[in-house]
């Protein structure tokens, strides 16, 4: 019990004093997670809209496949990206293994199924009459999709928040393709894993608290938007 209290006190000290190492790691985590989320969202949200709007053969199978990939283990993505980017692998010439870029690629792949699948279900939740009504009122294709998107915005936001949570909290991809290099690819989850193994609990707890704090801010913001 004593250990936990002492760790907590030290953790708070590290946070309020803006400890350089803690802030660097937290900042790097945010930047990498936001970048991968942004890239994945840029591709997956429109693609999800397209899949939703079009009728084609095997659509149900495709959606089931995407939903299955929600639970793909992070280490499997890590292994896949490692084999891809390793110098002995097909994209080895890019020299990207053990860089933040490799982590962004891995995390984007990790959250893509979530964004894609949940966008499709979010849009499916919209009343089928809505696009017809919009069109009958003279809206063009782009305006119609905007109306549908507006109707489904909370569900889409929830998908984005969920995907962000998965990206910022995962260890598997970060450690396998980032290498947990001090000052370069060390992020909050990998630092927590390393420091706990070393028995340095204060740093782990400080980073854990920051992770929770970030989640709190984001959910607070989301709630405010939904209410306002």
């Amino acid at each position: 019990m004593n250990e936990i209290w002492q760790g907590l006190i030290k953790a708070v000290e590290l946070i309020v004093s803006f400890d350089q190492e803690v802030m660097e790691i937290a900042g790097r985590s945010l930047v990498i997670a936001v970048t991968s989320l942004g890239l994945a969202a840029l591709v997956c949200l429109p693609l999800g809209g397209l899949i939703h709007a079009r009728q084609f053969r095997g659509k149900k199978t495709l959606v089931t496949l995407i939903q299955t990939l929600y639970s793909i283990p992070t280490v499997v993505i890590g292994l896949f990206v490692f084999l891809l980017l390793s110098r002995a692998g097909p994209l080895g010439g890019l020299n990207l293994l053990f860089t933040p870029t490799a982590m962004v690629i891995g995390q984007a792949l990790l959250v893509a199924p979530i964004l894609l699948g949940l966008t499709i279900s979010a849009l499916s939740g919209v009343d089928g009459l809505l696009p017809d009504t919009a069109r009958s009122l003279g809206a063009n294709g782009f305006q119609t999709s905007l109306v549908v998107l507006k109707e489904a915005r909370f569900a889409v936001m929830a998908a984005v928040v969920l995907a962000f949570g998965r990206a910022i909290s995962e260890v598997g991809v970060a450690i396998m393709v980032g290498g947990n290099i001090l000052g370069y690819t060390r992020v909050m989850p990998t630092a927590i894993s390393l420091e706990t193994g070393k028995g340095d609990l204060a740093l782990s707890m400080a980073l854990g608290m920051i992770l929770l704090f970030i989640a709190l801010i984001i959910n607070f913001g989301l709630n405010r938007i939904q209410q306002g």
């Binding site: 803006f18 350089q20 802030m23 660097e24 937290a26 900042g27 790097r28 945010l30 930047v31 936001v34 936001m157 970030i214 801010i217 984001i218 607070f220 913001g221 989301l222 405010r224 938007i225 306002g228």
Partner: peptide, 22 residues
Amino acid sequence: VKFLAPPVILVTAIYVLAGCEG
């Protein structure tokens, strides 16, 4: 904009702080 503002501000703030602290 409202939705995107908090994370963007937070990221920028932390990045700036992390950069200037050293």
